[in-house]
Amino acid sequence: MKKKKLRMGHVLAYLFLISGILITVFPFLWMILTSLKSQTEAIRVPPTIFPAKLIFENYVTVFEKIPFARMYLNTIISAVVTILGHLVICSMAAYAFARLKFPGRNVIFMLLLAVLMIPSSLFILPQYLIVQKLGLLNTIVALFLPNLFSAFGTFLLRQFFMSLPDELEDAARLDGCSRFMIYARIMLPLIRSGLAALGIITLRFAWNDLMWPLIVNTSTHKMTLSAGLSYLQGQRWADYPAMMAGAVMAVLPLLVLFIVFQKQFIEGIAMSGIKG
């Protein structure tokens, strides 16, 4: 009797989970299927599910309509520099906040936490004006400049540094290592999982962010992929198969990385919830 009840529970669980999977996956499938259809087939009534004939021209069209290769490159450069900036700047400050004593440390750290609470739209207009004043609008630098560091990243890595035992540093200090050397040589390698988590969280943000790239770079050659997709959609011509092809290509790199490093991705995100 008990076993039967348990089975019923499992069947219901599977039903719920599988219908959830279908809802999750369908938009992606529909994107891929549409991207392989001709424009006339895509708007046929009643619709076809699978393309009558596989058409790959939509993928070429995207490169013809917008400088898609440039956008790819811009996004990659911006994401890589943003991640490196985060890993270096945040980890250094996080180490100082976690393990060094200096006057004003707690006050500065509280100010840092205050930044976490403030909505990004409060910063974005002055940030734009600063970038404008520096003459950096429509440059690659504009894409990553205010995003090279974050209060969140510093906070996250500080939690990792704080969890390391003091004895690790004591021996090195007796040997006369400077605090910076201790940070770089001993402590940093020990928080690898934290750095990986921050790297992943930052990658996800840098690759997908829309508002900032949309604002600073209006020339299509300097746009990121997400701004490029927005631009593509804003065009008068409603070539849905081409748009879907663009979306497929914009989404693919992160999807592939995710499939390869799924454990690190999921752990990194889960960590941000627990440590935060």
Binding site: G20, I21, T24, V25, P27, F28, W30, M31, T34, R204, W207, N208, L210, L225, S226, A227, L229, S230, Q233, Y240, M243, M244, G246, A247, A250, V251, L254, L255, F258, I259, Q262, F265, I266, I269
Partner: peptide
């Protein structure tokens, strides 16, 4: 893994797909 896929998908692309749907 499958449930997590929308979370790593670009918001602009997600919006584009749904606009088509």
């Amino acid at each position: 893994v499958i449930y997590f896929i929308p979370a790593i998908t670009m918001g602009a692309a997600v919006a584009m797909i749904w606009k088509w749907i």
